[in-house]
Amino acid sequence: MLDGWEGKADKLQRRLQLEMEEWKLTNSDGTFNESRYREILVDQKLKPDLKVVNSTTVSSGQLPPKPELSLMEVWNIYCEYRKHDLRESTFVSTYQGQYKNFLKSAIEATKSEDALKIRNWLVENRNPKHVRQLLSNLSKAYRMGIKNKLLTHNPFEGMAEEITTKGTKGKTQNEVETENDDDVLDRAKAYTWDEREIILDYIKNNCPHWYFFTSFKFLTGCRTGEAIAFMWCDIEWEKERILIRRTYDVTTKKF
C-alpha cells in the first residue's frame, strides 16, 4: 500500500470538489471532462505525465481551437447554475419557459445567433421589460462562461442598459408620474358590494362548485394560489382568525 495514501486521497477529493464547483469537470454537452481529470491526477503526482497523440492534431502540432458554445448551450449552462438560487416556479416558468422560448423564437426568426440581430428582433416582437431582463441575464451568462474559460467574449455586454422601458402613454419609466397608493381601502379600486353579489349569484347558478371558493376569495382578499393551499389546520378557532401560510404554484404543481 502507498505510504500516506489517506492524505493524498483527501487532498485529491478537495481538489476535485473545487473543480466541480467551477464547472471544470463537465464538458459543454454535460459529459465528464476526462482530459481535465487526467490533468489533475498528473498535477497531484498520482499519474505520469504522458503526452497523448490525437488524430485531430493539425500539422503544427497544436490541437484545433475549441468551437464556441451555441447561444442555447450558454443559456442552459447558466440556467443550471442559477437553478438553486431561484424559486422553483420562477426557474421553470421564467428561465426555462418564457426566456428560453424568447431565444428560440429569435434564433428561428433571424436564422442566426448574431447578438445584435437577436436583440433587435426581441425588442420589436416582445415586451421591452422582459427583453431587458433577458439580455441582462444573457450578459451574465456569457461573463460566467468567460470566467470558466468556456467562452472568449461577451456579445451581449451592455445591451440591456440600452433598452428604455416604455410606461404610461409612451413615456419612459422614469417619466411616469406614479399615483400615491396611500388608501388601500379605496372602494374605486375594487368591486362594489352589488357587483360582488351579481358575480357570486352567477357562479352559484352556473358553476356552483366554485361558489364557496370565490366567496372565500372575496371575503379574505387572498390570492388564488393561497386559497387553493388553504387547509383546516390554518384556522385558529379560538382567536377567530385564519392563517395564510402557503401557496400553490400551477406551473410546478407544488405547494
Rank of each mutant, 00 (worst) to 15 (best):
D85Q: 10
D194T: 06
K204A: 09
I244G: 01
M231K: 15
A227C: 13
E113S: 03
N101P: 04
E162L: 14
Y211V: 09
P155N: 14
G167C: 11
Q62V: 10
E124Y: 01
T56L: 13
N206W: 10
N76V: 09
S112F: 06
F156A: 01
T178M: 12
P65L: 08
E88I: 09
N101V: 12
T26C: 10
Y81G: 00
N174F: 10
T224I: 13
M20L: 13
K140A: 15
V58M: 10
Q133S: 15
K239S: 11
D29V: 11
L41F: 01
L243Q: 14
L122N: 04
T31C: 10
F91L: 15
E68Y: 00
T90W: 03
E108I: 13
D183K: 03
T178Q: 12
V42F: 00
N205S: 14
A141S: 05
L103W: 03
E162I: 06
S89D: 09
K149H: 14
H153F: 09
R119N: 13
D249P: 05
G145H: 01
Y211L: 15
T247E: 03
K217G: 12
R38M: 04
I203K: 01
D181M: 11
V176H: 05
A109E: 04
T90I: 01
F102T: 04
G158T: 10
L50E: 14
D234T: 02
G30Y: 00
W210S: 10
E226P: 00
N174Q: 14
A229G: 02
Q96L: 11
S28R: 08
I203S: 00
L135R: 01
L138Q: 06
W193L: 08
D49G: 06
Q17A: 11
L103C: 06
P155F: 08
V53Q: 07
H209L: 12
